[in-house]
Simulated scan of single mutants.
Amino acid sequence: MTVYFYHTQDLNYIYREWKAGRFPAHLLYGATHLPDEGIGVVMHKHSKPGSRRIVSALRNAAKVIFCKERFDAVYATKYNGLELLIFLRALGLYRKPIVLWHHQPVVLSKGWLKNMVSRLFYKGIDHMFFFSDHLLEVSLATGKVTRDKAEQCPWGADLVYYDRLMAAHTCERKDFISTGKERRDMPTLLAAFAKCSDQHLDLITAADCCGTNYEEMLSVASIPENVSVTINRTMWIPELAERILPHKCVCICCKETNYTVGLTTLVEALAFGMPVVISKNPNQPFDAEEEGCGITVDYGDTECWVNAIRRISDNPEEASLMGKRARSLAESTYNIANCAHIVANALRKFEK
């Protein structure tokens, strides 16, 4: 069996970097491991997105439809850019199955026309992977998705990559770090560390993301002396991983959302064997506190963040045990090899 692998990012570059050992495989959603499962992969030829959504959809549909290499199904990291192909599949005008990851819950639209179009759209997707059971159940409740065409899949980090990184950079782990950019609650995090002046936080974030200008926000905020701020303009996953490594705990302080915001940071912390302090989000695939690998905190609760920071800093043995449980969870479930195996099993249903 062979699949056509579609990614919204430059997967050709990422794949080359992964082959050279300079990039983790989980950003390719198991495609790197599908050959080990007996499934060949045809890589989508990336090009810069068009300024208009319809232009990208037309271009990507043409690349898939007129691809000269033989493949049995399309496997995609998300539907963005494949909308036209999916509608063609729904109308019976494209014959090959489409399997993809759905990053947010399927929802009911406002108005009967939007719901009708949306139902037609999802008819064109043969199988979907959701990051958590909660996202799956919410989506099933809309009636637009059926259980036989959807499942939860434990997406996780490339343990081989992180093991190699840890072996090459042995160091003492100290201080806290926050590296996220999507829907981060900076005021709560800064207020908590202002009350924990003996604990240092390395805060790394993008200049702006999802409509929030963090650079502007942080330029006028009162930054405690124990917080170092870096506006990230060039670092990607590999560089950020090296920055995370010498720390004792990862902070994932988020605003309330309807999806798994912070999941990439979370699974990478598991791979590093680091405890986490994370906003309690029912959309995540697991509860860090219930799994014993971290502390969950209610949205916007500064005092709970202070207590969590103190608990990590004042109880190094407990924090170390959390880290060991985190790594154990990564090895048993949340790793890219396990993810790829589940993806492969789903893809095989469409083998010809």
Rank of each mutant, 00 (worst) to 15 (best):
residue 107 V to L: 06
residue 94 Y to T: 06
residue 148 D to S: 14
residue 350 F to Y: 15
residue 129 F to M: 10
residue 188 T to L: 03
residue 272 F to Q: 07
residue 260 T to I: 14
residue 305 W to K: 10
residue 327 R to Q: 04
residue 184 R to V: 05
residue 81 G to P: 09
residue 195 K to I: 10
residue 273 G to D: 12
residue 344 A to C: 12
residue 72 D to R: 04
residue 342 I to D: 04
residue 88 L to I: 06
residue 55 V to N: 06
residue 108 L to E: 10
residue 149 K to Q: 12
residue 211 G to V: 02
residue 64 V to L: 11
residue 332 S to L: 07
residue 276 V to N: 05
residue 79 Y to K: 01
residue 31 A to L: 13
residue 175 D to F: 01
residue 190 L to W: 11
residue 52 R to S: 04
residue 67 C to D: 14
residue 169 H to S: 10
residue 143 G to K: 11
residue 271 A to S: 12
residue 62 A to H: 13
residue 231 I to H: 03
residue 196 C to V: 10
residue 184 R to D: 11
residue 35 P to M: 06
residue 257 T to V: 09
residue 258 N to Q: 09
residue 120 L to T: 06
residue 179 T to Q: 01
residue 57 A to D: 15
residue 320 S to E: 11
residue 232 N to H: 10
residue 226 N to W: 09
residue 134 H to F: 13
residue 75 Y to S: 02
residue 152 Q to D: 02
residue 113 L to W: 14
residue 201 L to D: 07
residue 136 L to S: 13
residue 313 S to T: 10
residue 344 A to H: 10
residue 283 N to H: 14
residue 149 K to F: 02
residue 1 M to N: 02
residue 13 Y to M: 13
residue 113 L to D: 00
residue 296 T to P: 03
residue 128 M to I: 12
residue 150 A to S: 15
residue 292 G to E: 10
residue 184 R to Y: 08
residue 210 C to K: 08
residue 229 V to C: 03
residue 240 L to G: 01
residue 330 A to E: 03
residue 47 S to Q: 08
residue 201 L to C: 12
residue 216 E to I: 06
residue 23 F to G: 00
residue 4 Y to D: 07
residue 151 E to W: 00
residue 283 N to I: 00
residue 131 F to D: 05
residue 328 S to Y: 11
residue 80 N to L: 13
residue 212 T to Q: 10
residue 137 E to H: 12
residue 69 E to M: 08
residue 50 G to A: 12
residue 6 Y to A: 07
residue 241 A to L: 01
residue 121 F to W: 09
residue 170 T to C: 00
residue 229 V to M: 06
residue 146 T to F: 01
